[in-house]
């Protein structure tokens, strides 16, 4: 894309993109570490994930501040406006993903205080799928790639499916033996957190499509009868 006449403006937009990428990298790392702490029964690692949430919160504020100042001072239009609107929204999703990674770490600490209920099979698969959705959604954002973003949208149902499957399995453990209930519930929670992470990745991918094409693909039912654009 052609550069802006104002080099300073160009640099600010670039800085915003970098801030979001850094934040995205941070939360991806948090998901990975939270899962590692669960699988390796490593509460110290889980505590480090919980502590790193402050960095994510600070990065969210920083990015929002830059977006507001760009809106106020540059009066962006067209693709720049859509880029900044997207940045404002996806930062919230990324921050929530960070919170969910913290929640996984908290459950991991609790689970590690008791003997394992069962070997983890579906949970790591869900984590890989959800984390890959976050990574690809961010790649699509950086590369302005609506095709990749659409691929991310298509991955969400696989994660939902795993969540349903895992819930069913854990239910049998709970019915079998009431002493399993606490641990089984905690694992169910983790599955739910991963499913929510995939939902946030979906939101990011939807915003990337909006950023690239100016087309809002969210809530098709609510948009019935409206104009094609926006």
């Amino acid at each position: 894309m052609t550069q802006h006449t104002s080099r300073h403006y160009e640099q600010e937009l670039q800085a915003l993109k970098e801030k979001i990428l850094l934040l995205g990298g941070k939360v991806e790392e948090m998901i990975a570490s939270a899962m590692k702490s669960l699988l390796n029964r490593d509460p110290d690692l889980a505590r480090r994930v919980i502590a790193s949430d402050r960095e994510v919160d600070a990065a969210e504020l920083d990015s929002d501040h830059l977006c507001l100042s760009l809106l106020a001072l540059r009066q962006p239009a067209a693709s720049d406006l859509r880029f900044i609107a997207t940045a404002l929204k996806i930062v919230t999703d990324l921050e929530r993903i960070g919170d969910l990674a913290v929640n996984i770490a908290e459950r991991s600490i609790e689970l590690n205080e008791e003997p394992p209920l069962k070997p983890y099979i579906d949970i790591p698969r869900m984590a890989t799928a959800a984390s890959s959705m976050v990574g690809r959604a961010l790649d699509a954002f950086v590369r302005r790639d609506p095709v990749l973003a659409r691929e991310v949208l298509g991955s969400d149902s696989a994660v939902d499916q795993l969540n349903v499957q895992l819930f069913r399995e854990l239910l049998t453990y709970m019915i079998e033996e009431p002493r399993n209930v606490t641990r089984a519930l905690r694992i169910t929670f983790i599955a739910k957190y991963l499913e929510r992470i995939a939902d946030h990745a979906t939101n990011i991918a939807q915003m990337v499509i909006f950023m690239c094409e100016g087309r809002d693909v969210r809530h098709p039912a609510a948009q019935e009868g409206e104009a094609e654009e926006f």
Binding site: H4, Y9, P76, A78, S79, D80, G214, R215, F230
Partner: peptide, 16 residues
Amino acid sequence: FTTPVDRRTEDYITGR
């Protein structure tokens, strides 16, 4: 101002 279709419009209104 939000979704121009032509690249030349886009460049002009975004200051490129």
